[in-house]
Amino acid sequence: AFAVTGFRALPAMASAEDADKMVMDFTGGKAPESGKIMLNTPEIAENGNTVPVSVEVESAMEGDDLVDSVLILADGNPNPAVATFHFTAMSGSAAATTRIRLAKTQNVIAVAKMKDGSVYMDKKQVKVTIGGCGG
């Protein structure tokens, strides 16, 4: 009932502290607030090699109400860095989707930096499972 192979051999795991440090580097040392940003991931990955990840930030995306960028991290990968999205007024909305690699069950983290310097974070656990069995 199981995929007995399939986990990629990976070097020693990075710690969640590395991810925290990357968040702080991105925000310039500011602790992110919750709210405004919504991270959407599957609860269980269908395939750890390609996990869809979407973010959406509440913003008019005009005038001063602009999202500058969104940092995506995976706190259980050997290197937590995943991607950084950059938005402009021409983005129309601060929403984007990509697909990422997750080595094991872990948290995906998204941090939004607004044009006014305020920062917001959301976090979701994604389970990477061996698979098999069922009802």
Partner: peptide
């Protein structure tokens, strides 16, 4: 030695 069935592989 493990035997089983219904592998998703």
């Amino acid at each position: 030695a493990v035997a089983g069935w219904a592998s998703v592989n």
